[in-house]
Amino acid sequence: MLLIRCPYCEEERPELEFRHAGEAHIARPENIADISDEEFAQYFFYRDNPKGMAFERWRHMHGCGRFFNAVRHTVTDKFVMTYKAGEPKPVLEEPQEGQSAP
């Protein structure tokens, strides 16, 4: 069971309190009614499935209830960082596999 730091509760909490909520930093288009089929497909259907660093949404479902974002390495399962919803996507240097997360 992973430990995940909730940026709102300001501490690490057991994974059982959380729910994964898909890829992060995909904003709903403001003019969604008017976008093209291709734009809608990109927004709604297409997702990255990276081997390595992934930007994901999580919700502290059984904690403070907040949605937040996380950077997790999909091979090592290590969380590099978590941050509040609405904060900008962080720029990361790809760490080597096996290297400890900060």
């Binding site: 509760c9 909490r13 059982l16 309190e17 059984h62 904690g63 403070c64 209830g65």
Partner: peptide, 10 residues
């Protein structure tokens, strides 16, 4: 205090 889980419930 905290919301958390106990077995299979919140």
């Amino acid at each position: 205090c905290s919301r958390t889980v106990l077995g299979k419930i919140e």
